[in-house]
Write a protein that binds this DNA or RNA. Structure first.
Lengths: 180, 180
DNA sequence: GGCTACATGTAAGCGGTTACATGATTTA
DNA sequence: TAAATCATGTAACCGCTTACATGTAGCC
């Protein structure tokens, strides 16, 4: 796919950043739907530079430390927008080790099956609380043209996702208990 | 992770199958949460055989065509159950090209943003209908000890997942329309 | 002075996809 | 008899992770 390329271009389309900054983005905000390690980011930035989609200027921090601040070029913005307007096919449902275990769970004792589901439910409830507290940083819906609007939509999606997973797990736990 | 190994062991724990049968499983039932191409399955089966976790007997179909029917061994069943009882950590939220686009969608014209969301909604609504019709093959909840019970739980999860995505997309579309 | 964060790179290896390659059986 | 399906394998390549490797800056 080469999606990392567009993830980087999209972020640099919002503002200029260093490779390190981009790495941090993939660890925080963006991590809900994309991520990459620095070992993948730096070579990709080099390729984007060679292709004229981004450019950088070197800034010096302190006395010796140098960093490369990357900006998107006109050509880069063009390719990014082309990608944004492409048809977006339905994604394959993601692989899930947990669901694989649930699928095979008839191999477990009823008690172990229940533990499997309950432990997972606790973990998702914890993450849900965390996401909900993140959501409070938006006092109201951000204006549609702002970068925050996309942020708002995906965060809302993340919360709804964890809510559905909690509902699903609770339903499975009920089924297991009632069948005993 | 080496999860493919356990996916194969889990399926062979239910019944004996050929490499081709396993490939078909990954294209149908199991595809909701795991999948693999034959080019990955055949070498993995060879490895599992070398490790004594599965064994096969050759069956002849027609006059010349040979197929290998694989069965799980005692050692294989043991390793599979060990894996089933391991702690199952919270999975990283899956990468999604679509959500990436939604995140960046302030770069689009309001009309293009709406089209992006609406097209995706239509696709998910279509798949949801398909999943719901699959679900009708269960006249009632299967007994907890049967292989069908795991199948039932994950299919229920898949339906709930597509429902939540439809709800999320509908909500996003509303936001975009109200902000105009 | 020591720890954490900032900052940038390379190399080996793994999981997975795409493509190459072959041949038998069934069905229209 | 032609096409689709059954059936099994290998090889090249790609995206990504883990580990290797190095050095600076800020903070306690």
């Amino acid at each position: 796919m080469g999606t990392l390329k567009y993830a980087l271009l999209g972020l640099l389309n919002q503002k200029s950043l260093t490779g390190y900054d981009l790495m941090k983005e993939f660890e925080t905000t963006v991590s809900e739907f994309w991520y990459a390690k620095h070992s993948q980011i730096y070579p990709e930035l080099k390729k984007l530079t060679d292709d004229g989609l981004v450019e950088f200027k070197v800034e010096t921090v302190g006395s010796a430390m140098q960093k490369k601040v990357y900006s998107i070029t006109g050509k880069g913005r063009e390719e990014f927008l082309d990608w944004m307007l492409e048809k977006c096919p339905l994604e394959h449902t993601p692989k899930s080790e947990f669901r694989l275990r649930v699928f095979f769970s008839s191999a477990l004792e009823p008690q172990a099956r229940l533990v499997l589901l309950q432990e997972q439910l606790e973990k998702y409830r914890g993450r849900l609380k965390h996401l909900q507290s993140n959501f409070e940083k938006f006092p109201q819906v951000p204006p549609q043209g702002s970068d925050a609007f996309g942020d708002y939509m995906v965060l809302m999606g993340a919360i709804m996702r964890d809510e559905y997973i909690c509902n699903w797990l609770a339903k499975c736990i009920d089924l297991c208990k009632n069948a005993e």
